[in-house]
Write a protein that binds this DNA or RNA. Sequence first.
DNA 1: CTCCGCATTTGTGTATACACTGAGTCGCGA
DNA 2: TCGCGACTCAGTGTATACACAAATGCGGAG
Lengths: 209, 209
Amino acid sequence: MRASDRAYGVLLEEIQSGTLAPGAVLGEVEQSTRLGVSRTPLREALGRLVSDGLVVQASPRVTVVSDIDAADIRALFDVRRALEETAARLAARQGDAAVFTALAAEFATTDAAADPDAYYALIGRFDAALDASVSNDYLTSALRTVRTHLVRVRRLARDNPARLAASVAEHRLIASALAAGDGELAAHATHVHLHNALTSILDSLEGTP
Amino acid sequence: MRASDRAYGVLLEEIQSGTLAPGAVLGEVEQSTRLGVSRTPLREALGRLVSDGLVVQASPRVTVVSDIDAADIRALFDVRRALEETAARLAARQGDAAVFTALAAEFATTDAAADPDAYYALIGRFDAALDASVSNDYLTSALRTVRTHLVRVRRLARDNPARLAASVAEHRLIASALAAGDGELAAHATHVHLHNALTSILDSLEGTP
DNA sequence: CTCCGCATTTGTGTATACACTGAGTCGCGA
DNA sequence: TCGCGACTCAGTGTATACACAAATGCGGAG
């Protein structure tokens, strides 16, 4: 495995988990020594993080972990809505019905509140099935960026059990609609789901600013 | 100006203009000597082009200029529709009406067939106004990628005068709708515009495969 | 003549040295 | 004492050297 990939992976995980808090300064020499790689692969990792939008160049000489506030989350969800509704319509038309039928069954039997990590893993498989169905690299790539930021957002706003249960039900409907080839229903269910998710996140942020 | 920026700019222009044809192999030593920079900044430029999707790693050892076919163009326009309709709705709500009124007037008096370059420059200013109005970095960033690819597509499919004239009229309607704050009209007009643009491009490609 | 294996070569991945810029600080003068 | 200027230093941008891996070509053996 390449050193630049390892550096990128470590930094990505640390930013997403909050170990590297927003505003943290990422000096090249400091991080390269800490991660045990030289500056060259570390610079490549930083470049990828910049293009992801997870770190920004505060000044020509200092790069910091980007901040994220309620306005950013709203903006992120505006893009997410656009992309995921499109993905839903395309997947309903082109996707493998059996795959989404199976996923719908999994959503029906999952207790998200009991094991959130397993639920997020299921979401991951659902997203992967969606990506495979749309077979549109431009869309998949754009969604990848959105999801990268979404990991941070999820960490900021702790999901409550009631919201998780509702989210499962919403995903089950989306998966069923995709299995049935009903693109309109899938798109509208996605819209509703994202609306509820955003509302829940913003409400959660209200309490802990 | 940084050497890596120059290398990126030159390579971007050459790929978009077709000087570097799809499939062209981009060796690091070859390109670095040709562009007069060392391998380090050239690698950074290649990395940015990879994240843009303009070049791909054909194998672990060889990076080539990415190809683009009709299926890619359809996929690109699926994403473009999603993003630009969203941008239109947001701009209609938040944008400065005066700016779009002025742009609508410019579209009304522009003869695209007479001076295509001036027309594309006007489109550029329209896009910039749209970006400023939505004030959503995630959306703007995603649109930037789409537009980067679109430059290549435009080159592949020579626009005909009739299509250019129709395109101007469509943009005029979109700008008017944005000035009037009518997000639904703006979004639907955008949808129609993109449908017509895609149809024209694909028709143009039919003739010259 | 063909096929297999080894060597050479080409090209990328990584490390490091050097150069340059920008900021901060210390000192000198008013 | 305050302000301006120069110097120093930290840190990034760039170049280059080294290491390693893969592909290709050549030679020998069957």
